[in-house]
Design a protein around this nucleic acid. Structure first.
Lengths: 220, 220
DNA sequence: TGAATAGTGTCTGTTAGACACTATTCA
DNA sequence: TGAATAGTGTCTAACAGACACTATTCA
């Protein structure tokens, strides 16, 4: 006989708000792990594709319908007692989002990842796997822009890199590298109005998915 | 009601034999996909962890009990009609193996990946995802040595890189980079006996998991 | 000896990081 | 004017790739 297992999709949705990396979470109001923070998730339906399930969970459970969130599969978590009630296999998805309006689901909220100590199940592990993946993706893909609004400055993008990587970057070198990477940024011609500084060029995401050359976070 | 789904673990086990990348496969002897090549796989049991399931499939189904194979999770494949009989979610694992003796399971065999045209289900896609992951791992981890026997020469390791990446590398630059990468290779003091050439130093795998600096396959 | 493979040294172009310097705004 | 941020240019050390050269074996 073939064992059949409930399979859930859990989302690590990250964004940059203020000066911190934030995750989309809710506080559990019943056991198990009552009072702990949890990622949004849901069971996949019998005829549902995995990306479709992730998009459905994002729209319905996470309260972000139609939001411009980059979703990609993270990894699958399956040790038998990760849910004390019954065995549940979880296919985790990573979502990268710009600083969006509050979720339409009242119980969901953005919380700084550094503040999320008590998390339900293995969600803390999953979240940190997602953060590590996000950091790696910034190196060799253009997904840093997924954290930014449609139009953004080089300083906006630099702040994303600094917060996800947890280190400061030289604004001048960053500017040079990011504007030279082919297809990363498309100038809009417009500039920001700022207080006490030279206005910055506004850019849109370019067509490149992969960065040439990559933005390495090796030493320094 | 929570839908329950059969979950399998499928293995992309790769090795370097002769001058080609090989995968561990079997030829299906019944429908669906009769006569096509398939990866080894098996359903996970109700109380079984995913890595344990992968190790079990490697030992029992793939016929490689106790073999020194590096196993890591690749990704999960879940669209509903990937198996025409019933929906099966597949958690794929990538295995990197040295050139081992033939599998103890008679129906399993090593086949050059370039020769594997007709593959069952989505196994061709899974296999190429595994090959791409292997290529990426060679860049920044010491897993190239996982394709080599316990003691190997720099030329052995270079052949691994060349075959997985599908391009030739300068032997002299490769030698310099690989011997300088901290903790990658440990000299044994012994040398090989060869025909018509200077004997090569034999090395063992060093303690490093990550390569500093990485072996990038950018241009050139 | 020559062929073959192992291993070292050197050169050149590119790049990362440090940082001086200019540009443009607001108060 | 000074403070603040944007953006450019320059220097240096490190590194990748090209390749000359030496070392050690077998036939």
């Amino acid at each position: 006989m073939v064992p059949r297992i409930p399979v859930s999709v859990d989302l690590v949705v990250l964004t940059v708000r203020g000066q911190q990396l934030n995750a989309l979470v809710w506080r559990r109001d019943r056991p198990p792990y009552q009072g702990c923070w949890a990622l949004s998730g849901g069971f996949i339906q019998l005829e549902e594709d995995l990306p479709a399930a992730a998009a459905r969970v994002l729209a319905e459970r996470a309260g972000m319908p139609g939001a411009p969130v980059h979703l990609e599969q993270l990894r699958t978590y399956g040790y038998p007692d990760r849910d004390p009630r019954q065995r549940v296999l979880s296919v985790a998805y990573l979502g990268l989002a710009p600083d969006l309006p509050a979720p339409t689901e009242a119980h969901m909220s953005w919380q700084p990842v550094a503040s999320l100590r008590d998390m339900a199940f293995d969600h803390r592990r999953i979240m940190f796997d997602g953060i590590e993946r996000a950091g790696a993706k910034l190196e060799y893909t253009s997904l840093g822009a997924a954290f930014c609004p449609a139009e953004f400055t080089v300083a906006d993008l630099r702040r994303v890199y600094e917060i996800v990587w947890g280190r400061s970057l030289d604004p001048r070198n960053f500017h040079r590298k990011v504007t030279k990477a082919e297809g990363f940024l498309v100038p809009t011609g417009r500039t920001t109005t700022r207080d006490g500084g030279r206005p910055a060029m506004l850019y849109r995401r370019g067509p490149a998915e992969w960065l040439h050359p990559p933005m390495l976070r090796l030493g320094g």
